[in-house]
Write a protein that binds this DNA or RNA. Structure first.
Lengths: 217, 217, 217, 217
DNA sequence: TATGAATGAGATTTCATTCAT
DNA sequence: TATGAATGAAATCTCATTCAT
């Protein structure tokens, strides 16, 4: 009786388990929004999910698996957004492609931060299975998008790879507070801190035509 | 003689201290070449440098400071390489600039890995001083290079920012073994894994002219 | 079965936790019997208790807390002994009180050594809570004893304070090997090293009547 | 030239060395007045003495030796005071002896704190030589005093031993802030904190006659 | 399945002491 | 003799992960 409020209901069947995984993910998500990875402990996630630390490990083998899963979610959400945008309007020219891609990124700040993680932290402690699943997800969406854009998959792949690199690189260069300026720093930076979207748009607009041109050769 | 191996020479004057810092850095460097950050312990660095653990902390306050310092070294080495390359041959066109920059990166694999670190791990546990020093180094070299290239500093800054983003982004996409394919994976990637240098060259060649053109407007 | 030696049983409910605390205390106790405080490391305690170092810190915040707890135990044991002795025989005269107190100390060598610690080392690194708990223990027992002796609490308090001072002072003067005589010392001490019990008895026998007399005035 | 102000003059001959020892002792003394032993680092002593840490160790082998030396000084000063007091007025009765001893302690707070140290910390890390020297000092003064008081040395020895025990014990009970009451503690101690001098006087007054009487038996 | 105590590795700090210069 | 860098042991703390219940 007293236990009901203090203990979560046991997840017995697969659906309940999936539900539980999802709750954990949502908890991690909430914390991730305003906590950097290194300061975000499994303990906190457990507390936020109202579960015991050990329970987390029934659903995710490692901290990295948990965050890779989070990345999966966000990536899928973004892929969906991209596809929706393409469906909503004709996208054929290089400029249109660029615009759609740049616009699609706007609401996905968390994804951008997660992508940085992938490259460093998430490399380790990942089961081959999770890694395979991740690549499968990317491949599947890549394929769908290349069909929608009516481009050869190789070209789509390179475009998105460049986008990925730009997102990863520019995220850090523009938004991360890393090596930040102390409040009283006399040597203020002379140049504007570059804007994520502007620079990515500029770069993509320059790159995409080249990639599209290469296919014909 | 026998003593030589048992105790390091004491670093008394500033030069010797700098020397000792440098030795520690070299030890960290050797380990860094084949050990990921998270598996590289201060204990190991101490052993490799043939110093006591406590001594390390006389020279570097935290693990992060140590690696930021390593990044500093590599960055300076690269900046020097870039400047040497520019001196060695006329570099005026966008294509020439791109070629020089791309070529300069070739021997700096460690730098590329370190840059990834900066964006995630090195954000934390860094004294404002170290952060300031880091930015000063970047600024100084940026200034020098912009003079050599006879370009407005803002343009140089943006070019290098794009280079930075591309390095950061493409490093991960091409060389990192992250989310790697298990040996027995049936689903071999259909597309060639993109090549770091090729893609960066392609992108930079497309971007630099745009940036140089913007200045006149 | 084989597991029994590799991992301690987990302390889940409060009683088991108290049990675990007590085991740690017993381990500390065993070491304390033949190791001076400064040479007794938390590492050793952990090994002796067959626990990981970190586990110790789940139960005791600092080395000082651990030893204050040890003192608590011993003090309580002694207080209990005193009360049992008083119950066992009529104790009314000053002489009887003295005899009981002196006799009660005999088996508590560890307590005497701990009391010395209290005055120097244990002052530091103690949470207010622990300090309060310690004083509460003293007060409670003081109260009980004064009731048993049918003396005003103030008198009991002063008698025990003198006993405390004498124990602290004479412990050092008689048993401690401090500033000990080297084996080959020509200057043998001319006088007998005073005996702890004799001197305390002598002093207490002289003091107690005075204190008891003062109450009537 | 510049060195003169920044470096102490070299102590070459024995007098200069003694002088240097004395300076170190004075530095330690100044710090000891308001710093507990455990918080008083050799580094601080070195700074206070305007010497390098290593130099301290040319004059004192260990931290304990240094503080034993400090104790020596204070003890000698007190012995001298006692002897001066005895010379200044007739001291024959037990009461007079007690009064003189109690009065003599008044200005020697530092000594009282040092005596506590002796019993715990100073036991260790002491060369036999220092220990011998310490006992020699005690013996010499004991002898002188017993002559002045015209008492058998054994009796003087026991009286002073009791005094020592009382000082040690009551110092802790009355002055030390150990296990102190937090400011907002509701459970204020019901009884007055006993006064060092009052209690020692009371005890000594009761004990000395007994000891003096025993000699005749 | 759920729990949270236990683990153990590693980072960091402090400090008495040693030793090359 | 004087120096202060180097040592190394120990305390402390944090955290991902494991495992007995």
């Amino acid at each position: 009786m007293a236990t009901e409020s203090s203990r979560p209901i046991r997840a017995r069947n697969p659906e309940e388990k999936q539900q539980r995984r999802s709750e954990i993910l949502k908890a991690a998500e909430r914390l991730w929004e305003n906590t950097p990875y290194s300061e975000l402990s499994m303990n906190q996630v457990a507390r936020e999910a109202k579960l015991a630390k050990g329970t987390l490990y029934l659903y995710y083998d490692t901290k990295e698996e948990l965050f890779l899963s989070l990345l999966n979610e966000h990536l899928q959400a973004w892929f969906t957004d991209v596809q929706d945008l393409i469906k909503a309007q004709p996208v054929t020219s290089a400029a249109q492609i660029t615009d759609v891609l740049v616009a699609s990124l706007r609401p996905h700040l968390s994804l951008r931060r997660l992508i940085l993680l992938l490259s460093t932290v998430l490399e380790r402690n990942i089961k081959p299975d999770s890694s395979t699943e991740f690549r499968r997800l990317v491949r599947r969406n890549l394929h769908d998008i290349s069909q929608q854009l009516d481009l050869p998959p190789e070209v789509t792949f390179r475009i998105l790879s460049h986008l990925y690199a730009l997102v990863l690189g520019w995220h850090e260069a523009s938004e991360a507070k890393s090596i930040s300026y102390p409040a009283n720093d006399q040597e203020k930076p002379k140049y504007e801190r570059p804007d994520f979207e502007t620079e990515i748009a500029l770069a993509l607009r320059a790159i995409v035509p080249v990639l599209m041109a290469e296919q014909t050769s």
